[in-house]
Design a protein around this nucleic acid. Structure first.
Lengths: 240, 240
DNA sequence: CGCTCGGTTGATGCACATCAAAGGCTGTGG
DNA sequence: CCACAGCCTTTGATGTGCATCAACCGAGCG
């Protein structure tokens, strides 16, 4: 057992993951030693585009810290199509909230979008995570953000599709700190936008091409850039 | 200051609130002494129907434990109508998640539904709440439930209005533990249902009266009882 | 008594979904 | 190497679920 851990640990070092972890906002002001002990036994998962990190309904024996790329959190609807609950980027912690339960199952699936990497950490480690007030605080903040985002979407429930799309694009563009360019740091298909706002692909396409024509946005091989965020913001409050 | 606390504390005793608190699942297996110290300085707020407990955007200097009745958590849309985010009952903790932030503002408003009582606890107490692993654990579970509910609603986003209504009614009916009668333990107007599922009052009324005619539900002065939950569940999965 | 609030019903219209068809692009295997 | 399948995108035609508007009723209430 401990041998196994050792091995995993050396793996952490090997790939130079430790400094990468320390660079995350999640672990800022933590010493390398602390991070190393918190992530003991963690294993780096490298995913291509569209690979499942974990699946809704399966046993939650691990939790995850995203290192690079992005993952979508998805649930299937009974009609067979997907509903995207959230997009997670580097520094996000996945599967932590439910670890306090007895026999936890993942409530959602996590699927990579483009090449992505995550650290897979045994559930057992969580006991020392939750004894660290700073860490608990930061994980709560991550959850709080997700909650706020879900609530905001509920508020826009009765609004037009354009309002929901504007909200989504702006929210995603804010993920990256460099405010100069409003480029969404996640490769995003129209279908994924549709699954997020709960609409059909065709409707998304119609609105996106309209916005492109008007010069509000530019899309370029799944990279979406917002040119006139003021116009998009208008949609979010528009009566009509 | 300490005098004030004393007074508040005696207030806790006076109204016999302490045993009431201890009876909550939140505090089960806690001693009266512990609960008393955790809720030190707390003040009981008694509300009629439709009174504001706290308002979105105001400074969050307190957090709350619901003693009796129910509260709806609401945000205004830019169009001027309400969006109900969640219904909270006895034992729920409100305003706790954001207390880890620097200068927290309530992200939502809480409004009583029918006569309700809540314990208003100074923010300062939260520091000793969050040092108690059991309490942190239980508050996380409450949050987890809210998260799951919001996610479920996202999954039903593309479904018919009937599916969303069925989901809501069943979820609310499950709030009360007595499984014999499927009565929703919260007085609920059609408008409130509409604001929760993001629909118009008229549409809710049409569906509710249809269901009443068919004998699926009975409503009786804002008390809704589900007679045939199997029929409602059918709607949640129905293709058409 | 007029007031507001909650419930109800019908007529009309629109913002979407749905269906259908087609073209580009990528990877895969014969 | 080409053929084929699968994914993503696009456009047009058609349909419909639900919002919106308008009007009315009953109950509670200052």
């Amino acid at each position: 057992m401990s041998v196994n851990c050792e091995c995993m640990n050396s793996e952490l070092m090997q790939y130079g993951v430790l400094p990468e972890l320390c660079a995350l906002k999640l672990f800022s002001e933590f010493s390398e030693l602390e991070v190393k002990s918190l992530c003991q036994g963690g294993k780096v998962i490298v995913n291509d585009h569209r690979k499942v990190l974990f699946k809704a309904g399966s046993k939650a024996d691990f939790f995850f810290v995203i290192l690079s790329g992005a993952f979508k959190l998805v649930r299937q609807t009974l009609q067979g199509d997907d509903a995207i609950i959230h997009f997670s980027g580097p520094g996000d912690v996945l599967g932590a909230l439910i670890l306090t339960q007895r026999n936890p199952l993942y409530p959602i699936s996590a699927i990579s979008m483009g090449p992505s990497r995550a650290l897979k950490i045994p559930k057992a480690n969580y006991s020392c995570w939750k004894d660290n007030p700073t860490l608990v605080f930061r994980i709560q903040n991550l959850l709080s953000n997700r909650m706020v985002s879900l609530q905001q979407q509920k508020v826009l429930n009765k609004s037009s599709l354009q309002a929901k799309m504007a909200n989504l694009l702006i929210e995603l563009a804010e993920l990256q700190s460099t405010n100069s360019q409003q480029t969404i740091p996640i490769p995003l298909t129209r279908k994924e936008i549709a699954d997020t706002v709960g609409a059909s692909v065709e409707s998304i396409i119609r609105i996106m091409s309209d916005w492109s024509k008007k010069g509000y946005v530019v899309t370029n091989d799944k990279q979406i850039t917002i040119l006139k965020s003021s116009k998009l913001i208008e949609f979010m409050g528009a009566e009509i």
